[in-house]
Design a protein around this nucleic acid. Structure first.
Lengths: 236, 236, 236, 236
DNA sequence: TATGAATGAGCTTTCATTCAT
DNA sequence: TATGAATGAAAGCTCATTCAT
């Protein structure tokens, strides 16, 4: 919408402060509205969400909504950006999702890294499932949301693409695969599995799901659960 | 508006063919409306689709719409059911999608069967991509659509589940995998890949996509592209 | 707004048929709405006029208003155009307003022609006074209305300008005057007099008003109430 | 909202100086608001003017507006009264506008006095054109504004009426004219000419406009640009 | 049947005004 | 006094649905 990515400024990660001006009280009220909006959007989707429901849930009159946001799109963008931020930051920390690189100590199983990344992703997905589905809908009709959705996806896929290429270079992954295609496919697998599980209410169990997905992931690439990155000191 | 009591038939959520006309002319008119509806729903989504657009596209006044359908939900259900039918029938013919069984002649590569199934699926997906996305949205808020969506999915997953179990029994697939989990995951992979490709406009190429997905599929299950079903006459 | 002058098509003089489609019934309804709109606009002005009041006065629900007009501006344009048409046509017939023109028979008093024109103008003004005032307001904020207002004015002023120039050429009007300035000033005099009289409720009497204005008019131009156009056959 | 009960003082329609602040600071703040209000009203008209714009332009929060004025009508009345004052005072000083007044020295051309008055009026009009147009609109729906508008007009017309009567008595103006009608008509001429010029953006040039209007004015009354008031000492 | 006029629930948005701080 | 958050009456407009012809 109006405001550009604010990815560089970690202190104001969510952005979209069109009607920013705030006293402490105002800030609290605004936050309440964003929270309420998220709940309502998750429940009703974008199109069926009513401003009045948001305001009421936030404990105020609908007029107050307009003190902070100009339109429904505006809060939605805010909510979406907040989620994007959470999803992205949740997927990096220890070892970036989908790859095994920094590998501090020599012989680490690729599988273990994949397990960690997948677990992180699914746990995060669980918390945001409904909202992501809603964003996905809305994204089909809105430029910026589409971009947000794509960025989240690309962050994962890009990382995987790089990792797969590295593994191929190291001689442990199937060289016949196109890293980009494979990364997109395997990312889709985990992503969609989360959707089926958390949104469509499939009945799965976390440990087993993580294990299955991770196994499929490494084997699909031609590795086994025991495959390790060759010791660079030796290899180099 | 959004979710009215359906006092007449709570057991018939989205609508049925109560008003099915029987004159040839009526049947043609109705068909025109369903076609037009599909186009409009694909373009605008369920919520933003307007009866008037559907009627106009079908070349008639909006009043006529109600001669054939009681509500917007009703046509949508019809459109969704038609698509479900096409998707399902498109995935069975030669050799059912996602498995390699009927295998007429003795030594056939699993990979080849998977390739055929995946290609069929993606080709079919391409034709229905937008509509499936729309149905997916609507399904979150409608019982029957949800069911339709699930049925399409289950048809694929169930077939794969059975196939995987068979391959495990035949000793060619990784016995450590839960067939249900694995089938769901691999089905998700192909399904989602299609979505990213056709709806989110990813840029892929058909042959390469089919090959990559099929490779990942068989390898994920612990097979290779050369793995064949053991000759049953011998095995038995 | 959307539709251009339709001045050439006398059969559809009012224009603005954005939602034209009409059955006889629809045509009647639309006409009722235009009538009602005029009344409401005269009473409340543009800004304070409520669509609901218009619809109610026309004896229908406000929703029906939107069957025929997309916005308040649209009906207003229609009403304004209708008035423009009446004003303009009311000022031409017998002998065009403000000038002494073609004068069929030789010795005709300029004063008599001016009297006729002024009377016609004031009578017409009386019928449209409130509405003109409202249009004038609205015109300050709307392109097309501004144009309409200006066209009505120019029709009068241009005719006067030409007449004054003719009289000067004939040697009966003060040659020191700029015809354009003088025509604008004298036109303003009659126009504004009408406003003061009919809108601000000045108390005047028709015959006396017409006589005074006409006298002032001819004398201002350096003529008297007895001045006649010289016989052209003689002059030529 | 629009016309609330004014429980405190029904006899004081538009507002008064109930809240007149007395500290120097308060007076300054209030003045800033009136100035800002004038600007905003000129730009947006009464209906579209927003309190917030006024307050912001005056450099303060909108809450402060209500420290000084109870309603939008109230500031508008203040602005209108200020303009009335300026217009009236601008038209009297040297020699009152529209008449040939106290004529200090014996033989003075009526034309010269009229020129002075008309120039003063047009110059003043130029400064107040937009605002007068706005007041005129608002006046149609508000008692007091209507009164203000009428007072400004009458001040001019009454003076002219008296002057014309004097000139008729002196034998230099056409005795057939009703002084009241003529004064209203000629006043309208100048007034409306100013409107067409400054509000409707007619293109005129000051000296020529003043000369034309003044010539028309004296000639309309049966005088010439050379007519002088007879020396009273002689006449008397 | 086909048509399109009529209806009104429902939603968004604006903004003057009130009021706690 | 000054501030700006909160309020809610009011309107405009959309569109599914009903109904007379």
């Amino acid at each position: 919408m109006t405001s550009p990515e604010r990815s560089t400024a970690p202190s104001e990660p969510v952005g979209g402060n069109e009607r920013t001006p705030l006293t402490p009280r105002g800030r609290r009220t605004r936050a309440k509205l964003v929270d309420a909006a998220r709940t309502v959007f998750e429940r009703d989707g974008f199109g069926d969400a009513r401003i009045m429901d948001i305001a009421r849930l936030a404990g105020m009159s609908y007029g107050s909504f307009y003190t902070y946001f100009a339109t429904k799109e505006e809060v939605f963008g805010e909510v979406a950006r907040a989620m994007q931020h959470e999803m992205l930051s949740a997927s990096e920390p220890p070892t970036a999702g989908g790859d095994a690189e920094p590998a501090p100590e020599p012989p680490v199983r690729v599988y273990d890294a994949v397990v960690r990344a997948n677990r992180r992703y699914l746990v995060s997905y669980q918390r945001h499932a409904r909202l992501m589905a809603v964003i996905e809908q809305a994204a089909l009709r809105n430029e910026e949301l589409f971009r947000i959705r794509r960025e989240v996806r690309e962050a994962f896929v890009d990382r995987s693409t790089a990792a797969i290429a590295r593994w191929q270079a190291a001689g442990i992954a199937d060289p016949a695969l196109d890293p980009g295609y494979a990364a997109s496919a395997l990312g889709s697998m985990v992503d969609r599995f989360g959707y089926v599980w958390f949104v469509l209410d499939g009945s799965f169990e976390m440990d087993k799901a993580v294990d299955t997905l991770s196994r499929l992931w490494v084997q699909a690439l031609g590795m086994t659960t025991e495959t390790r990155l060759p010791d660079r000191r030796v290899a180099g």
